[in-house]
Design a protein around this nucleic acid. Structure first.
Lengths: 121, 121, 121, 121
DNA sequence: GTGGTCTAGACCACA
DNA sequence: GTGGTCTAGACCACA
């Protein structure tokens, strides 16, 4: 369900956050679905429960999941999530493009580079 | 010449590296131009010399500058730099676009978002 | 009769306590009215009976209900309840106002903010 | 500088957050002031560094401080902070008043209770 | 020295 | 069982 890449420079908790975000945004996980308990996922991934706890706290803070004490963590029903994710992603894109323009790369060059990627997915 | 943003989450050495890279790629700094000595820049920016040294080592490792012992640090004459920078930048773009496609954002939506940014520069 | 909000960060037993308190203070539930049995309410709300039991114990401790063994739980006839509730509520208000005054918010600003809320109820 | 109340039901990290917020909002701590290092404050308060770390992360997330890696944590220069704090505080007040109105407490009664508190500060 | 991440493990509240 | 907090302590990146 969740894969950790130890060669990835990003911290483990961040990778966990990202995996869940994508699964929720893609609809693999649906509103009110229960996600694994902190302890279970920790055992499954051979990771310390504190690290999972941190990932889940972050997911809750960002509105992707909600916690019911004593029961577990569940996927939120928040229609705003995809919209917010898009905004963040476009902001990132624009930042990179700005850097590109600065060194003389043209809009057309960038667009050519993006085109055709959709089907690779 | 170099501006450090202490509120930027990135480490200082990384900001220094990035500033020099951009100045070299934009042609603000030309091949064989002498860049400030570690000591001088450290004083100018009120930064630990170790931090500048680390930035310069990184710039040398990436081929942007070369060191002449006893003389100082100079901008490389390396025609490959822009090409390599472009490849890295396009790789980043593709990674983000891949994530976008995964959550259902279309190529057209991305391209619309990029268009028009060139003139804002 | 009782609604549980699983997205509410507060524990379930606390929500149950609060709902009953409000119903009793508003007069929706009257002295000596029988409230649902632990078992029935647990089934109705699809909640663990332990949780309901804990809520009822808390309500009894605070004087809102009394238990007759073998008969059930009943609303208390305690004229002091509203008075005590008011005191608690005013204490909370004062604590928040104190914090407000500390950062320079004026009494007038607070009062303006409260005025007009009564009819929204 | 910071006092922890072990009888307080709130977790320690939350108390630390609250103390710093108030000091910043009251102007006791000014923009770009350095706050104690995680380790130092941990020793001073006889608290685990992780707990201080958590408090500082929260303060950063809320925009009260910023971190310079390897240097320390510093007070932000964010004019929005007081405004946002006010909004949160007024929201709390309204929630309590709403509860008050529900059990028949009048606006006037509440206002009388608040008046005169400003000078006690 | 300074913050950031992570492990190991305890204890508590809640269901 | 489930999450939340905290302690103790290690190791790393950065300055």
């Amino acid at each position: 369900m969740i894969l950790i890449d130890y060669r990835d420079a990003r911290p483990i908790y961040e990778q966990v956050v990202e995996r869940f975000k994508m699964m929720i945004l893609r609809g693999v996980l649906c509103p009110d679905d229960k996600i694994p308990s902190v302890r279970n996922l920790a055992v499954d991934l051979s990771i310390n429960p504190n690290t999972i706890q941190r990932a889940y706290s972050e997911l809750e803070r960002q509105g992707y999941i909600y916690t019911v004490k004593g029961k577990g963590n569940f996927v939120s029903d928040n229609g705003q999530l995809l919209l917010r994710f898009k905004e963040e992603l476009f902001a990132e894109l624009k930042k990179i493009c700005k850097e590109a323009f600065e060194v003389g790369i043209t809009e057309e060059e960038i667009i050519q580079n993006i085109r055709g990627g959709e089907k690779d997915d």
